[in-house]
Write a protein that binds this DNA or RNA. Sequence first.
DNA 1: GCTTAATCGAGACGGTACGTCGTGTCTTTTC
DNA 2: GAAAAGACACGACGTACCGTCTCGATTAAGC
Lengths: 203, 203, 203, 203
Amino acid sequence: MPAEPTDTRASRPASRRSDASRRAILDAAFALVGEVGYAKLTIEGIAARAGVGKQTIYRWWPSKGAVLFDAFLALSEGEDGDTALPDTGDLEADLKLVLRATAAELRDARYDEPMRALTAAMLEDPTLAAEWERRLDGPVRELKRARLRSAQSAGELPADLDLDVAIDLIWSPLTSRWLLRSGPLDDAFADAVVASALSGLRS
Amino acid sequence: MPAEPTDTRASRPASRRSDASRRAILDAAFALVGEVGYAKLTIEGIAARAGVGKQTIYRWWPSKGAVLFDAFLALSEGEDGDTALPDTGDLEADLKLVLRATAAELRDARYDEPMRALTAAMLEDPTLAAEWERRLDGPVRELKRARLRSAQSAGELPADLDLDVAIDLIWSPLTSRWLLRSGPLDDAFADAVVASALSGLRS
Amino acid sequence: MPAEPTDTRASRPASRRSDASRRAILDAAFALVGEVGYAKLTIEGIAARAGVGKQTIYRWWPSKGAVLFDAFLALSEGEDGDTALPDTGDLEADLKLVLRATAAELRDARYDEPMRALTAAMLEDPTLAAEWERRLDGPVRELKRARLRSAQSAGELPADLDLDVAIDLIWSPLTSRWLLRSGPLDDAFADAVVASALSGLRS
Amino acid sequence: MPAEPTDTRASRPASRRSDASRRAILDAAFALVGEVGYAKLTIEGIAARAGVGKQTIYRWWPSKGAVLFDAFLALSEGEDGDTALPDTGDLEADLKLVLRATAAELRDARYDEPMRALTAAMLEDPTLAAEWERRLDGPVRELKRARLRSAQSAGELPADLDLDVAIDLIWSPLTSRWLLRSGPLDDAFADAVVASALSGLRS
DNA sequence: GCTTAATCGAGACGGTACGTCGTGTCTTTTC
DNA sequence: GAAAAGACACGACGTACCGTCTCGATTAAGC
């Protein structure tokens, strides 16, 4: 994984690393994985597509999974406005909104294959999974926690609720269906999951 | 994937296929994937371990993922006693029992890596995922549905409940945590998920 | 090599060997070697072309070279009228006639590639070469010797001439040029070789 | 075949080709073909023996025959002192000397099998034969021609003699016997061929 | 502004595995 | 009991990538 991602704004003192090559590699990796899938993604292919020597990739990344990972990071650094989940005071409505948006993204052809590839990479490489947890999933999970805590303060959720269990209950049905394509990822499903999770299956 | 799995009892007249080789290949694949992981699992390695020519694998399976898949099938055909989920009349207790058992299995070193590998294979090959759905996950899901229907009859669950959503709500937190190693898979987690899913987070 | 070739006219008592298959194999081998060359000639290819099981070939021949060899035998058994070289009393004229005919045959596309193939087979397999010597080249060489002996009787050649050296001197330039394609195989060359061999390079 | 053979003395700027690997491959090919014969010579075997990746062979040579060919070239580049045939003024004696030496070389176990293999390769691949003609046989033939021309100047041979026919007449009996093992390659044979060729079979 | 060392593109290298083809042996079924 | 058919263990094919290693040629730093 690349040394330091977040302090791009600041100094960057000692490195003569070519940013043009870095971007070309990341873009090529993202584009390629969407075309051929993770299994057929190769370092050589990325290098050729990016117009870059193989060594330039090996110098900065330990594996194709790590390249792919950084391609995702670069993507989310582009947007990254979402510093918080919506909080209108109506938890159920807010969650439905969020899950519908997530489902839409997972249905988007541009992201489906690459994210599936990244998931495959993490399945086979625990260090990637840990990095994902630290850099992307962790922060997002904290946002989710914050929204649920807000609901606790508002009395919408019990104060002693285990937030990690709650988050899994709300979000994992979506990712689960997506990963194994075991059902449609539509708004109705998102709504049903939120409603059921909040009110319980028992009436 | 081999043509006919279930009619092993009957004739099998037209094929000169060697059953000894088939078993050796399946066993070797299962053992190897536990040792080296899915990414480093190779057809050549399986053939060598099984004492078999590569062609014998290529003749009957289209990919290493398909071999792995059949290795799992062979495994579950061995046991296959579980024709139903426990039904004591107490849904919550029964589900806790089942989820605890599932969690235990996912924690078992003998199955963790191979199942992770199979999941990776299915992520990269939709036809494998479909086959998995048809042959293993589908039947199991039907057992789950049956148990929930029984609970509906007993008045433990509302009659108009969407059973597919319910099943996802109950089981996906477990698989989700397992896949990305995002938390412990202990009995407490299993219990908490079942309780929350049934009673709702709002309670 | 097949057991007994020459007594085909007579009994054939104990063998249930299929003559149709034998002919089909020999024809297929001869045709195939003309199309793809010796290196790419395969037992499987011959069997497929002949509509015959591989085992039928392995049962009766030890190698693809042996099959090819028999294909040639079958060919020359068809003709085999030439029980003697022409003997008009004029040795030089007779030899020119014979060498021109040989050169013409070597130029014939139908025989060039197959004979080249057979030569390659003999280069790599001394037992084939020995068989060739015994069954085809030997008898032919005896015909040549007979013609030269006749010339000795007629006083055209010295009585103490080493006939084997003489035969090599007359015939090997032709085969040599043919094998390595080191020059044209036309009538002029044949004539020049005969003239030079008989009269000597010195004057 | 490698691009430039003769300008080894000069720069060689543009190629990053490893000379150590090249030599190892050539040596391995020559050694192996002497041990197992041409038919059982494999690229894989050469690579293994040379301690080299297969791709390094495929990168620089189109076939095993071409490798073998270069192995011979490398050999003859080592010696290559023979810039002319002996010329004592006595053509017959000189030719006997040369043919005896050639016969001795063909009898030498170190060269017999490899040269036979190279001949087989050329039989099956006309481009190899052409290259052989251009690089080895051609120059040698020029030396022969030069010696015969010298004999013409000295009045030992007629001025209008076709030198190509003469060369074939003198040298092909030797190669012919060698190739098909149709007789002994001793000094007596060499002497008889030279004497007969020069003086003619008709005494 | 000059130099000098890290980085770049390119690509050869020793390897491993790919998926295919042919070998020679074997077994099963048909004639 | 030979023949067609074809599965099998084996081994080589020729290709694709791996990750490492030179090669000059930029190229940006610090002297």
